[in-house]
């Protein structure tokens, strides 16, 4: 293998193919224990490879662009995919849930990433895709998880806590007084993964981005600084996104007449 200009060793096609053999461990385990996962594993592997190879090409092309609207449009498309995927992992739906998720993802990601490229990292120009796109990607990936968790927990919490919420309403509570416990619980649960990952960061996990930079020959001390900024971005974007989506769901599943409107909830047919 020969080092590339930037330092890391290049992985040849043959060795890339060899790495795919590692998935056989999963396939063998699934077959031995009859987990029925072989097919999903295979599909997931193929998807992962194809998606990443494509993204490699797209990014190479993209990094040569110097067109702000195009790059922002691409960022918006990424946010849309994140918003839709977040909903697909919830067990229940209501009319407008996709719009709520999209709004929350886009607003939180745009605000936090915008702040990062204009104030914290300051690439020139601000829309330099080499910075903007990976930063946005990491923020979106984590916000998505938070929104999924928060939405799901909120809807299930209202269902299982229905008698308690309606008892409070029947005694004269406002909808906020009756639901605030469920709202708080959903936001708290959605933030746990982010807080956990910050707790053990560097001790248990070396985040992907930092690993990548170090492999590329960047000084670990410099890579760590990026990681710190990214984690703060992720934490704040997740908090904003979760707050937004749970707040919008709360408004949708209660009424201005202080009623609980669980009749607006429907089961999601197949789960993603």
């Amino acid at each position: 293998m020969t080092p590339t200009s930037s330092g890391a060793l290049t992985i040849s096609d043959g060795r890339l193919a060899l790495s795919a053999l590692l998935i056989l461990v999963n396939v063998a385990l699934s077959a031995a224990l009859r987990l029925g996962l072989a097919r999903s594993l295979l599909v997931a592997s193929v998807r992962m490879v194809v998606q990443l190879l494509l993204v490699g090409f797209v990014l190479e092309w993209l990094f040569r662009q110097d067109n702000a609207p195009l790059i922002v449009l691409l960022g918006a498309a990424m946010a849309m995919i994140a918003g839709v995927s977040a909903v697909q992992r919830t067990r229940r739906r209501f009319a407008g849930i996709y719009l709520n998720s999209l709004l929350s993802v886009m607003a939180s990601a745009a605000l936090v990433t915008g702040l990062a490229v204009t104030g914290l990292i300051q690439p020139q120009p601000w829309y330099d895709p080499q910075y903007l796109i990976p930063l946005l990607g990491m923020v979106l990936g984590n916000t998505l998880n938070g929104i999924s968790l928060g939405l799901d927990r909120f809807m299930e919490g209202l269902r299982s806590g229905r008698d308690r919420v309606e008892t409070a309403l029947a005694l004269g509570a406002s909808r906020w007084e009756a639901c605030q416990e469920v709202v708080r619980d959903a936001i708290r649960v959605a933030m746990i993964p982010t807080i956990n990952s910050m707790m053990v960061m560097g001790l248990v996990s070396l985040p992907g981005m930092m690993t990548g930079q170090i492999l590329q020959g960047a000084a670990p001390a410099a890579a760590v600084r990026y990681q710190i900024v990214i984690l703060f971005m992720i934490a704040s974007a997740t908090a904003l996104g979760v707050f937004g989506v749970v707040g919008l769901a709360y408004r949708r599943l209660t009424s201005a007449d202080h009623q609980l409107r669980l009749d607006r909830l429907i089961n999601a047919g197949k789960q993603g």
Binding site: R164, L169, A170, G172, A173, D257, H258
Partner: peptide, 24 residues
Amino acid sequence: SPASWGLPRWRSLVLYLTQRPVAH
């Protein structure tokens, strides 16, 4: 009308006791 009382007020005056009582 309920709107002129305000809904939380209305429910504290027309108070419903559910079949399945709950306590916290």
